[in-house]
Simulated assay, not measured.
Amino acid sequence: MEEVAESSTDFLDFLGPDTSATVFTMLHDPADLARASAVSRSWRTFVIANQFSKMQCLRVCPEVSTFARVEVSSSSGGKDHDVAGPSARAEDERLSRDHMVYMHLAHGLLAPCSDARNCITRCIGASSTDNFPEETIENTLEPIDRVEMRPSYWSSGGQRDPAAPEWLIYRLQADLCLVDEVKVQPFKAFFQYGDPIYSAKCIRFKMGYPTSPLEPETLVCDENEGQLIDDSNYVWTYTSPEFPMLQENVLQSFKLPHPVLCIGGVVKVELLGRVQKQAMDGLYYICVSHVQIVGNPVSQELEVAPHGKRVVMNYYPDPRRCSVARSDSSGDVGRSKWHGFASRFWHSGRARGIGGLNQGLLSRLFGAPLQFRGEDDVSDEEGELL
């Protein structure tokens, strides 16, 4: 009888909240967290109350702190608002909703993905254009600098000051995209004497969201140069360091220090400094033939909306809104391993100082594969990860 009673003991009760939190924060894979929350009702409550799914997202992308709150849209199109009644119940509802949405986001951020792509879908506008529409920003979407025997490039207006900046603004495929690098190719004017290359001196990138919805009529088209080029139309949540640009007619790669979550789906390419004068007028220009913003859309079920200086993340769990396709990993790549987690825990500095009874309990916990008991309250999102 004593052995039966001991085997049914909840480790959270013996470890206490602090040691238990230390263990759970070592779970870096959303599948591990989903499995742990499925062990029992008390484990699930502990995971939700401590917002471990949000911690996973913040660990990978600090930009997640921009979210003021999350909302879930019902199948009818309405929002699932906080329930009325006692504050404790309303808080439980909010935490449970946040957990579900951040689990979905964490899966999108951390799932193995090898099909990085150019995420640009539309051109919003350029700071200036010398000859519109012949030298429009839309030409930078072409992968080559000659289309139908004609040069294809964007050109800024001419400036006497070589320090005058220019910028190009693009709309990405989704409101949330994980961006890894940006590629830019300066234009070589093969039709001018000496084949000058109108590159910038340095380049920098900003990512963020518009302060109001982007209407199609405000974007670049054959009749419109774009109306939303001023910074007052956006809130930038990330600014990259400056990168030097070579005066070469090649697709130059600018790798970001770490993958960045672009919240809002807008990227500004800042071209800082000019190096090439045009012989015929003595003015400095910047010309670009091609731009790529390389990364992956996180999910088509997640959208953002401005909320003051922050944003609200909206989740649309409608099966008709398909998730962004991701390549399946093969073999053991990206597969969650409980023994791998146990090894990371014991070899980390966080395991130090845990002694006595807690050491014995942790040894028993990690000494055998984790056994899961089905729970009715496991969310669909967690079910996909298990």
Rank of each mutant, 00 (worst) to 15 (best):
R326V: 01
S327L: 13
S327Y: 06
D328K: 05
D328G: 09
S329D: 12
S329I: 07
S329N: 10
S329M: 12
S330F: 14
S330L: 15
S330M: 07
G331P: 01
D332E: 13
V333L: 10
G334P: 00
G334V: 08
G334D: 08
G334M: 06
R335S: 11
R335C: 06
R335G: 06
S336F: 11
S336G: 08
K337H: 13
K337L: 08
K337T: 14
K337W: 14
W338Q: 00
W338G: 03
W338E: 01
W338K: 00
W338R: 01
H339A: 09
G340Y: 14
G340D: 05
F341C: 06
F341Q: 11
F341Y: 12
A342V: 01
R344M: 01
R344W: 10
F345W: 05
W346H: 02
W346V: 02
W346K: 00
H347Y: 15
H347W: 08
S348F: 04
S348K: 02
S348C: 01
S348Q: 12
G349A: 13
G349K: 12
G349N: 13
G349S: 09
G349I: 08
R350W: 13
R350V: 05
A351E: 04
A351M: 10
A351Y: 02
A351D: 00
A351T: 02
R352M: 08
R352H: 14
G353E: 06
G353C: 05
I354Q: 09
I354M: 03
I354W: 01
G355W: 10
G355A: 15
G355P: 03
G355E: 11
G356M: 02
G356C: 00
L357E: 11
L357Q: 14
N358G: 05
N358S: 15
N358E: 11
Q359M: 13
Q359S: 15
Q359A: 14
Q359G: 02
G360C: 04
G360N: 05
L361F: 11
L361V: 15
L361M: 07
L361N: 00
L362I: 01
L362V: 02
L362P: 00
L362K: 01
S363I: 10
S363Q: 10
R364S: 07
L365D: 04
L365V: 14
L365M: 07
F366P: 00
F366K: 01
G367S: 07
G367K: 04
G367C: 11
A368K: 10
A368E: 12
P369G: 05
P369D: 15
P369R: 09
P369W: 02
L370E: 03
L370P: 02
L370K: 05
L370M: 12
L370A: 05
Q371V: 07
F372Y: 07
R373C: 06
R373P: 04
R373S: 08
G374L: 08
G374K: 08
E375L: 03
E375Y: 00
E375S: 03
E375D: 13
D376S: 07
D376T: 13
D376I: 10
D376N: 07
